[in-house]
Design a protein around this nucleic acid. Structure first.
Length: 313
DNA sequence: CGCCTTTGACCAGCGC
DNA sequence: GCGCTGGTCAAAGGCG
């Protein structure tokens, strides 16, 4: 009797686990589809923008690498180009400024790489992905190995901001900042900057893919020019995105995507997070928030799945 | 011994 | 030009 009831409960557990697995697969598939469609839109807008705007106003071009690429080579690592590493899933925000001196034709590949490197050395490399999570630990586990190289008390926040450098591979340019939220000390704000020049562990690829999805939403939101003070909504593959004006009195210096995973579970029937895109207060980077909400049948499971991407213990 | 954290100093960017 | 702030460097010390 007991054995039959326990085996049935095991079957139920197995079944629910399989259902959860299916849901996770669906979510990943959605993210991939989002990325593809956004990439297509991005390319279309690039073509339209180059035809319409010409030399009048040059928008910042942001290239997002998600997934594997067959063209990666270790020689390119030191140059920090947009080339991907074979076998590794990387997140990279590599905005490119068209050359002011010579924007009539595309440079050769070598020149192009040098242009990207030069751009990286300026503010371009500052494109960031910020993740807000509830975490009691000092840092959020994300699959990578980090070495702390600095700590600062920032203005307006009594909690010190820690600076970490990726030590998985020597010379990896990726850095992250970790700071507790001034509003809620239990909220950990982790800001990633740069692009890994090495294959990533599985847990780190999960983080990379999710932040890359956020970055693609940023691209979608920021590429639609909207006047300040207005908000807009976009629906894509079942996910609804809304953007609104960021009302920070002092916007950040560099484009930053914020993934907010701190919402309370009992608040609604939606799995909801907030993707915030902060740009420098220049005409080139209009500030905007990207909010998304997606109806999910099993809120708890979905939230666990979503958070599992970030907190893999 | 190697790797890590800590921490004060230094530098660059920005606003006034 | 000056001061403030954020970000990085590097020396010193701790730990396994």
């Amino acid at each position: 009797m007991n054995s039959s009831s326990s085996s049935s409960s095991h079957e139920e557990e197995l079944e629910s686990a399989m259902e959860e697995n299916e849901r996770l697969k669906t979510m990943i598939k959605q993210i991939q589809e989002n990325y593809k469609s956004l990439q297509l839109r991005f390319i279309e807008m690039l073509q339209q923008g180059s035809a319409i705007e010409g030399a009048e106003e040059e928008p910042e071009l942001v290239s997002l690498s998600l997934g594997t690429s067959p063209t990666g080579s270790q020689k390119d690592d030191q140059k920090r180009t947009t080339t991907n590493i074979n076998g590794g899933l990387t997140l990279g925000l590599n905005p490119r400024f068209p050359s002011h001196e010579n924007n009539s034709e595309l440079p050769k590949e070598e020149d192009h790489e040098e242009a990207v490197v030069a751009a990286d050395k300026s503010q371009v490399k500052r494109a960031r992905v910020s993740v807000r999570t509830r975490c009691e630990a000092l840092t959020m586990y994300d699959g990578c190995q980090w070495r702390k190289y600095g700590q600062k008390i920032s203005k307006g926040n009594p909690c010190p901001r820690s600076y970490y450098r990726c030590t998985v591979a020597p010379g990896c340019p990726v850095r992250k900042q970790v700071q507790r939220s001034v509003d809620d000390m239990s909220i950990l704000i982790t800001t990633y900057e740069g692009k890994h020049n090495h294959p990533l562990p599985v847990s780190a690829t999960a983080m990379a893919s999710t932040t890359a999805a956020a970055a693609s939403m940023l691209l979608s939101g920021s590429s639609t020019s909207q006047p300040p003070g207005l908000s807009s909504a976009v629906e894509l593959n079942g996910l609804s995105f809304s953007s609104s004006l960021h009302d920070n009195s002092r916007p950040p210096l560099f484009p930053t995507i914020t993934i907010d995973l701190t919402c309370s579970p009992a608040s609604s029937n939606y799995i909801s997070g907030r993707f915030t895109a902060d740009f420098p207060a220049t005409p080139r980077f209009p500030p905007a928030n990207l909010n998304f909400s997606s109806p999910v049948a099993d809120v708890t499971t979905a939230k666990q799945a979503f958070r599992g991407v970030f907190i893999t213990l």
